[in-house]
Amino acid sequence: MAEINKMAAEIADVQPGIQVPGFSLEKYKYLWSDFMNGLWSENPVLKLVLGLCSTLAITTSTQNGLGMGCAGLFVLTGSNGLISALRKVIPGKVRIPAFIVIIAGFVTLTDLTMAAYTPVLYESLGIFIPLIVANCIILARAEAFAARNPVDRSIMDGLGMGLGYLLTLTVLGTIREIFGNGTVWGASIFGENYIPMIVFILPAGSFILLGLLTGFFNQFTGSKKMTSTEVGCH
C-alpha cells in the first residue's frame, strides 16, 4: 500500500497532468477482488470444477492435500506472473505451447525442490507432482487471465486461485483422513478401537465428499452460470 502511494506521489510530482486522486485505492480494490475471486466466488475446484484429477486422487490425508495445494499455489502464482509479463512478447499463434513450456518449467522446479528438501512428502505425492503440468487450473488461468491482464493482477489471481485450491484440498484431505483413517495429521483421535470408514479413503468416498462440498459451497455463495471462455477450459 505505502509503496503504491509513494509511486502515485512520485508520478504526480513528475507529471502533474496524470490523474492521481483515487489511483492507489482503485488499484488496491482491483487486486483484492482478483484475489478474493479465486479464493471464494470463483473457487477453482468448487466453482469452476477444474483440476479434479489431483483433487480426487491425492486428498487421502491433510498432509497430502496441503502439500499438493502448496505445490499448486506456487506453480500457479509463478506461471501466472511470468506468462503475464511475457504476454506481449509471445505471439498469439504459439501461445499455448509457450505457456505449457513455462508451466512445465515451474512444475519441474517444484519437483526437483521437493525431491531434495521434502522427500517424505515427495514420495507420498508421487506422480501427481509432475502431473501438475496437465492440471487444468494452471493453463486455464494462464489462458483466461494472465494472458490478458497486467502482472500484478495476474499474480494476485494466481495467489487467490492457488489458495482456493489449497484450502479445498486441505479440507477434503482432513475430512477423509478423520473418517477414513481415524487420524488428524497422523495422530489417532478415536482411539485404537475405531474401525475406519474405508469408503472415505477410496475414490468413491472422494467423489461423494467432493459432490457434497460443491453442493454446500454453491448453496452458500449462490450459483452463477459460467461460460467456457470465463472458465478457460472445457
Binding site: I90, V101, I102, A104, T108
Partner: peptide, 24 residues
C-alpha cells in the same frame, strides 16, 4: 519466440538441477 521460451526454461532448469542434484 518459442525457441527463446524453451531455451530460457531449459537454462533455468539446468541450473536448478545442478543445484539440487547432490541433495537429491
Amino acid at each position: 519466440a518459442l525457441t527463446a521460451v524453451c531455451l530460457g526454461t531449459a537454462l533455468i532448469l539446468g541450473g536448478i538441477y545442478a543445484f539440487t542434484r547432490d541433495t537429491i
